[in-house]
Simulated scan of single mutants.
Amino acid sequence: MDDAVRRRVYGADHDAPWPRPRRVYRELVGGPLDGLLLDITGWTEEERATGAPLRTEIGRYGSGGRAVYGPRPGASHFWDWRGDIP
């Protein structure tokens, strides 16, 4: 797969932002992180069911703000944006 079609991973090192083998990812949908993948390898079932606030500088609250994402009912491999928080 060439780099033009690879999906980028939220929070990954800039030198290697692509998904890695044997890792578990969720696709972020909507909001400021739309289209990125989130590595949830090692997360508990409760953490996977709850979702997470993810730091971002491009959300409503700028630097230090967070975008909240959580699993889509019936399609938990997609995590939908639920809004931004300070």
Rank of each mutant, 00 (worst) to 15 (best):
D15M: 15
Y61D: 00
A67E: 07
R48C: 01
L36Q: 14
L38P: 04
I58P: 00
E45Q: 15
M1K: 10
D39S: 09
P17L: 08
I58E: 11
A4F: 08
D34N: 14
D84Q: 07
D39I: 05
R55F: 11
A12Y: 05
G59F: 08
L37W: 06
R66M: 11
H77E: 05
L37C: 12
R66S: 08
R23E: 10
G59W: 04
A75F: 05
R66W: 02
M1F: 10
G74L: 10
E57V: 08
R22T: 14
A49M: 07
F78W: 03
R7V: 13
W79D: 00
T56W: 02
M1Q: 12
P71I: 10
E57N: 09
F78A: 01
L33V: 15
R26Q: 09
I58K: 08
I85V: 15
D3Y: 08
W43S: 06
S76V: 03
P53V: 01
R20P: 03
G35T: 13
V9M: 05
P53K: 02
P71R: 11
R8C: 04
A52G: 07
T56G: 01
V9A: 11
S76R: 03
A16Y: 10
R6T: 00
S63R: 13
V29T: 03
P19T: 08
S63I: 13
T41W: 06
L33C: 09
W81Y: 12
R23V: 04
R8T: 09
G64S: 12
R48Q: 01
G42D: 03
A12W: 11
T41D: 05
R23H: 09
W79A: 01
W81A: 02
G62M: 07
A75C: 08
P17N: 15
